[in-house]
Amino acid sequence: MISFFNVSKVYPNGVKALQGVSLQIEQGEFVFIVGPSGAGKSTLIKLIFREEMPTKGQIYINGRSILRMRRRDVPHLRRQIGMVFQDFRLLPDRTIYENVAFAMQVVGARRSEIKKRVPEVLKMVGLANRMDNYPPQLSGGEQQRTAIARALVNKPSTIIADEPTGNLDINTSWDIMECFQKINDDGTTVIIATHAKEIVDSMRQRVIALENGKIVRDENRGVYENALT
């Protein structure tokens, strides 16, 4: 569960990225975060991930305060959260299998565990037959699915994606969203910051809309734009 209480973030250069944001995301929810560029979506994600600290307010992730967290506990917080980016962030000189296995090596997983888990996750995102290829040999959609597999491999409670379909065409975007839906069906919380109006509109999930650092709308089974605005 993720809770924000009256959270504000002002960057050192004076930009007020978030102002008095309060929200609650339960375990197992599927949430879209929408809004124009510069509305504060990325800052919201960075705060959940504790890449940035709030200027004001309190944030709890799975019952633990981000503010009171010691520095050495931060990696353990991050292991509960899988991150997916617009630019995939894969290592081009390692195979698909190695890219996913990397995330498990970093947290010190057993080799036998890695050998078992990596093919399992790759199968789940539909890349079982691409394990030995390198990222540049894959299409954008396949690369993004590799990144999703990597985010998922350590069994996080939450997957956060920042513009995951920003670099993909519409058909591929749908594949990716289906992939997220499947992950969510297994009980993982999914939070997606996106501009993909069509997808948000047709998936009818919870939508949190940000504008100028404030939540202007938060509705279940929502759409990208409110008819009134």
Partner: peptide, 16 residues
């Protein structure tokens, strides 16, 4: 730097 960035995101400890 790419690896380090990814390591951070998958929760590697500072010392690792």
């Amino acid at each position: 730097r790419r690896e380090i960035n990814i390591m951070k995101y998958v929760g590697a400890t500072d010392w690792f």
